[in-house]
Design a protein around this nucleic acid. Structure first.
Lengths: 127, 127
DNA sequence: TTCTATGGTATCTTTTTGGATACTATGTTT
DNA sequence: AAACATAGTATCCAAAAAGATACCATAGAA
C-alpha cells in the first residue's frame, strides 16, 4: 500500500528537551519517584518534568502510580510496552556515538560536545 | 568507561520540522535539485529548506554541489556516510508504524494521525 | 504553631523555531 | 527592453517551547 514514513511518530516520543534523559534514567532504574527524578535532573523545572512525563504517559511509555498519602508519593515507571523501544533507542545511541566521532574527525574535537549523562555505572546495556 | 547517552546526538540530525521528510525524499531519489525539493515540499519556505539542508550538510548527511551557471543549479545528494543512518531510520520507522497502531488501540482511530508522506511508490525499502 | 515534605498548577517572561515577504544576481528568452 | 528562471539572503513577525516564580493542599514533625 502507500508507503508512509513514521519516523516522525518515533520522534514525537523523543523530542522535548528532557525526554531522552528522563527515559534514560527511567529505563535504568525502572521506577522513580517524581522527587527522585527532580534530584537526578537538577536543572529541570517541575513544570517541564510534569509535562514531559505526562506526554510519555500518554504514549504508554511510562506509567504513573499515585499513592494516596500525605505528603504525596507518585512513582513513574517504564511500561512493558516501552521496552519495545529499546532496540530503537539502542540503534540511535550507537549511531549517535559513532557520529560524535565522525564530527570530531571532520571538524576537530573542539566543538563542545556535551556528554549529558556520565558515570551512570552498570547501566550501559539498555542504552 | 562512562556510559553516555547519545540518543540526543542522533536526534540532532532528525529534529526540525522538515528534516525527516527532506531525508525521506533525498534517500529515495539520491540526488535532488533545490527547486525539485521545493516542488516536492510545496509548503516549505526557501529559508527553511536552505536552513535544514545546511544543517544536514554540516552533519555530512547531504552533499551540496553547486554548478557555476546561470540560472544557478544546486544539487543535494545523500552522502555515503549518511547511508549508515538507514538502519536507525528504519528502526524508527518500523517502531513508529507499530506505535501508531498501539495508540489507535489505546485511544481509538480518531486522533488525527497525519500520514505526512503518502503514495511515494516503490520507495519503501529505504525507510 | 510553624515548618517541612511532596507533587503538583498557574501565570508570566524569555528563548527558540518557523513563516511571510521582499530583495538580489545574471544569463537566456521573448 | 522586459520577463523568466534559480538559489538563495535579509528582515520582520508569529507561534511554540521552555524557564522563572509563586502558589496550593495537608499530615506529621519540631
Amino acid at each position: 500500500m502507500a508507503s508512509e514514513c513514521k519516523v516522525e511518530t518515533a520522534l514525537e516520543i523523543l523530542v522535548g528537551k528532557w525526554k531522552p534523559i528522563i527515559l534514560f534514567h527511567l529505563f535504568s532504574k525502572g521506577t522513580m519517584r517524581f522527587s527522585e527524578l527532580q534530584k537526578t535532573l537538577p536543572d529541570i523545572t517541575k513544570k517541564m518534568l510534569t509535562a514531559q512525563l505526562r506526554e510519555l504517559e500518554y504514549h504508554d511509555i511510562v506509567h504513573r502510580k499515585v499513592y494516596l498519602q500525605v505528603p504525596p508519593k507518585v512513582e513513574y515507571s517504564i511500561t512493558e510496552y516501552a521496552k519495545g523501544m529499546l532496540p530503537v533507542l539502542d540503534a540511535m545511541n550507537t549511531w549517535g556515538t559513532a557520529h560524535v566521532q565522525h564530527l570530531n574527525e571532520l571538524y576537530g574535537e573542539n566543538r563542545e560536545v556535551e556528554p549529558f549523562v556520565s558515570n551512570v555505572d552498570g547501566l550501559a546495556e539498555g542504552m
